[in-house]
Design a protein around this nucleic acid. Structure first.
Length: 895
RNA sequence: GGGCGAAUAGCUCAGUUGGUUCAGAGCGCCUGCCUUACACGCAGGAUGUCGGGGGUUCGAAUCCCUCUUCGCCCACCA
């Protein structure tokens, strides 16, 4: 750890060994003391590869957990993976497809085995990738939603809900994915606005007395029609109610029924009813005792319940065939374009088919009520706040949750059916059953598995040992924050809240941070299929994890998306990469200037640096450091992570590096006295800044911090104490006075640039009309100003210096007059114009200000302090303008 | 169809309670510099009807109304 530092930061050589060192020392684990602070990681799919969404999500969580850890909390970040039922099954099915097989060819048990071994191989990949970002998880608690332990929790939750009557089985219209061959929950059927068509079809009355025209967006479903419905009060159809229709193409006789659910104003006001394939139709049919004819096979082909010529046709092929036949029969009245929302499978994007089938459901209303109440009571803190409204609205309109899936990869539903004809008992059980507990007959388990989200909703407590009463559970439940993308607010976050309230009678967390999405420059979501993704591992490899983290955190306004350019990583991650390098060089410079022990700044040590020894620059950087501590701490607390990161950035770059280090170089080099004090101040403020930055850039801060003087070999910034505000460091006088010096230096630099003074050429400058404090400051920091503005001499006079007829000049905001004699370099015409322009600007401002202050309304109604400030402003501007006029006079400028 | 939000520099966005952070930052752009920590750098610059219109107010990027344009969530008008 003591080899010389390279001029350019090389994250690759630093990060991996450092992470191993952290792990070896167990600093990410729980301390067991202090108030717990717990974050449960949203489990990535067990087959996932790290993408930028993870990069963003994990960076945020790690910042939060590291911040709280340094503040002394017993910070525990619980990582895990999700078995991801449908998604994982799809992956393995694709592998099988390459061998020309389906899961049905290999059989259920062999398939499950195949998935298990696949997951065993790849399951640790994503966790390894997470480590490369520097995530300070408690790896001893890594969970997996399909482990034996969590499977036991799933059974417990299921049976408990079943026993309370909150889980039931029944035949309803559910969302069916014909590709995945399973039922989906409402949330898993993503509605997408789609341009479609709506056809108007003539249905003839059986008695030949006329016809009725129905409208439909899915003509193929007519093969399963069992009625036509109209509104009972619709005068157009009053006479038709109760009559029979001869269903075209099929020949079946179906009734016309009246139901208030029909909207008379939509379409033709008459709805064809296909109870087996539409939820509204199903509802109406139930009320009228109508039959439901399922005309589709699981893979959405026309089934044998429809006329034979359609058998086996894909639903969209059948649609064309039905339309063609209806047209040929002269029954097609017309077709219109129609934009409507169509459900798509969230895993494979196939159009979802509403399907009548036997499924398991969770009764949600009783679970939703307390979850909604918690929000209304203000017990849930959403970031950004408006997301809470979405949460509440979803709960208000909650519908029962279909939890059974007709796939093979997942927690088998723990329900056994008695095979004895006389018994047929249905038993939910925590343990496997062979025999029916009622009659002792053979019992067989339900074939379906549970929705993946049924298991992941339990992780805030199942990952801590529930249903056993473990010490972990007692200490680390409930947790505190939950950080995730808004897409899974309903899938996961809401359900965790309901599950926590149901199983543990406590909210699983109280802060819900919902971050934006990572997008490309065209604001498209990054995706494999678009090829616009950024591989975080690639970014880490090029620029380091710290650069990635700073870039996303620093650019992350609360609740907004992060825009990155996949085609230009250099530019996308420039801010993080550049800052890391800057920081590296600040550290390199500082460390190289330290020889021997550095005196402490505070404490009882007789060697301590006293306040009297501090120069203005010292007091200023200490005050700025103090302000940064306050600003960053408050921003982290409010989860304004970008504000915190940028506050430290500004301090380190714009204050410490740009001004302070430049100011103390002569002292450090020994050219002027006070080097030991400067070293002490620089080391202390740098130490503080490193700690403030550590949550965002853990690797580089640790690397530099460890090299600061006086560190033991096993010292780590990971658990270093968070800097505390120190009122003794607050020093508005130093901030003002050093600010005046900065303005002076800036003004001289501007003039140098304006007149192309060679960077190496020292020039003279003089100041007049300074205030007492500033005069003192100038005298104390004369060498600093001379150095920073590259001056050969700086004089301070009461009045304007004589012989300034070949000088450039400027006035500072406090009225200080700056004169820079440049001899031949000064272009008099240009200088006159420059001063004139400045005067013009001031004159305009003075005019406005005079009008404002002449306004009786303003003077009488605005608060006195505001009026006073405005008066002072006016006076100051007049003063400045007068100084500039004087300069024009000296130069002999034309009026 | 219901609900919510956004529009500020070329790009991505800050701007928290209406008045000294009030017009800002980063990236990009222009000029000059390889000044013994850093060219992934230093110094100096340019750029805006704060989406349009109306209103409230002594005072509006900030509050209200309206229009326009984008975005998000929800939704069984077939």
């Amino acid at each position: 750890m003591t080899e010389p530092l390279s001029p350019q930061y090389e994250p690759k050589s630093v990060e991996a060994p450092l992470y191993r060192w952290w792990l070896a020392n167990g600093w990410f684990g729980p301390r067991g003391t202090g108030e717990p602070y717990v974050i449960i990681m949203p489990p990535p799919n067990v087959t996932a590869q790290l993408h930028m969404g993870h990069g963003l999500n994990l960076s945020i969580q790690d910042v939060m957990i590291r911040f709280e850890r340094m503040r002394g909390r017993d910070a525990v970040w619980v990582p895990g993976t999700d078995h991801a039922g449908i998604a994982t099954q799809n992956v393995v099915e694709k592998l099988l497809a390459k061998e020309g097989k389906t899961r049905f060819d290999v059989g259920r048990e062999a398939f499950e085995q195949r998935v298990r071994s696949y997951v065993a191989e790849t399951g640790t990949t994503i966790l390894e990738q997470i480590r490369s970002l520097g995530a300070s998880c408690d790896w001893t608690r890594t969970y997996y939603t399909f482990s034996d332990e969590l499977s036991r929790a799933v059974r417990e939750a299921f049976v408990s809900l079943f026993d309370k009557g909150l889980i039931y089985r029944g035949k309803y219209i559910i969302n069916w994915c014909p590709r995945c061959l399973t039922a989906l929950s409402n949330e898993e059927a993503e509605k997408e606005e789609t341009d479609g068509r709506i056809w108007r079809i003539r249905y003839p009355l059986a008695d030949g007395s006329g016809d009725i025209v129905v409208a439909t967006t899915r003509p193929e479903t007519m093969l399963g029609d069992t009625a036509v419905a109209v509104h009972p009060d619709d005068p157009r159809y009053h006479e038709s109610i109760g009559k029979q229709i001869r269903l075209p193409l099929v020949g079946r006789l179906i009734p016309i029924v009246a139901d208030a659910a029909v909207d008379a104003d939509f379409g033709t006001g008459a709805v064809k009813l296909t109870p087996a394939h539409d939820p509204l139709d199903f509802e109406i049919a139930k009320r009228h005792g109508l039959e439901a004819i399922d005309i589709m096979t699981p893979d959405a082909r026309i089934a044998e319940t429809a006329p034979e010529r359609f058998h086996g046709l894909d639903r969209f092929v059948a649609r064309k065939a039905v339309v063609a036949e209806l047209e040929a029969a002269g029954l097609m009245v017309g077709v219109d374009n129609h934009r409507h929302a169509v459900g798509h499978c969230y895993r494979c994007d196939t159009v979802v088919e509403p399907r009548y089938s036997d499924q398991w459901f969770v009764r949600m209303a009783p679970l939703a009520a307390p979850a909604l109440q918690a929000y209304r009571d203000g017990d849930l803190h959403f970031v950004p706040e408006r997301r809470g409204l979405e949460y509440a609205q979803w709960l208000e309109g909650i519908r029962d949750w279909c939890i059974s899936r007709q796939i093979w990869w997942g927690h088998r539903i723990p329900v056994w059916y008695c095979q004895s004809p006389g018994c047929a008992a249905m038993t939910a059980s925590r343990t496997d059953l062979d025999r029916c507990p009622t009659c002792g007959g053979t019992a067989t388990q339900d074939e379906d598995v549970l929705d993946t989200w049924f298991s992941s909703q339990l992780v805030p407590f199942s990952s801590l040992g529930w249903p056993d009463s473990t010490a972990d559970l007692a200490r680390y439940y409930p947790g505190h924050a939950l950080v995730t993308a808004p897409e899974i607010l309903f899938f996961w976050v809401s359900r965790m809240i309901m599950a926590g309230l149901e199983s543990r009678a406590t909210l699983p967390f109280t802060t819900i941070y919902l971050h934006g999405t990572v997008r490309d420059t065209q604001h498209r979501k990054m995706s494999k299929s678009l090829g616009n993704g950024i591989d975080p591992l690639d970014v880490v490899d090029r620029y380091g994890a710290d650069a990635l983290r700073f870039t996303v955190i620093g650019g992350l306004a609360v609740g907004t998306d992060v825009i990155l350019d996949p085609a230009d990583l250099d530019t996308s991650f420039a801010s993080g990469r550049n800052f890391a390098n800057k920081l590296w060089n600040v550290g390199r410079f500082l460390l190289s200037s330290l020889d021997g022990p550095v005196r402490p700044l505070a404490g009882a040590d007789p060697n301590v640096v006293t306040r009297a020894e501090l120069s203005l620059a010292d007091r200023w950087i200490i005050a700025r450091c103090e302000a940064t501590v306050r600003e960053a701490t408050e921003a982290f607390e409010k989860l304004r992570l970008n504000d915190a990161a940028n506050a430290v950035y500004r301090f380190l770059w714009n204050d410490l590096a740009d001004w302070y280090l430049e100011a103390i170089k002569p002292r450090l080099y020994g050219d002027v006295p006070g080097g030991d004090v400067a070293r002490a101040v620089a080391v202390q403020t740098f130490d503080v800044a490193l700690r403030l930055l550590h949550p965002v850039m853990p690797f580089i801060t640790e690397t530099l911090w460890k090299r600061l003087p006086g560190r033991a070999d096993d010292a780590t910034i990971v658990i270093a104490p968070w800097p505390r505000p120190d009122h003794r460091a607050v020093d508005p006088g130093a901030v003002d006075e050093f600010g005046a010096l900065q303005e002076i230096v800036g003004a001289i630099r501007s003039i140098r640039a304006e007149y192309n003074v060679q960077p190496g050429q020292a020039i003279r400058a003089s100041l007049a009309r300074c205030g007492a404090h500033v005069t003192a400051a100038i005298h104390q920091q004369r060498s600093v100003i001379e150095r920073l503005a590259k001056l050969s001499a700086l004089t301070v006079t009461e009045d304007e210096p004589a012989g300034a007829d070949t000088a450039a000049g400027a006035v500072l905001t406090d009225g200080t007059s700056l004169t820079v004699p440049l001899g031949d370099l000064v272009d008099l015409v240009k200088e006159c114009a420059r001063l004139g322009q400045e005067i013009g600007r001031l004159t305009a401002a003075i005019g406005n200000q005079e009008t404002k202050l002449a306004n009786e309304q303003f003077v009488s109604r605005a608060p006195a302090d505001v009026v006073e400030k405005e008066r002072a402003k006016l006076a100051s501007w007049r003063d400045q303008a007068a100084v500039l006029e004087g300069k024009r006079g000296q130069l002999g400028c034309p009026p």
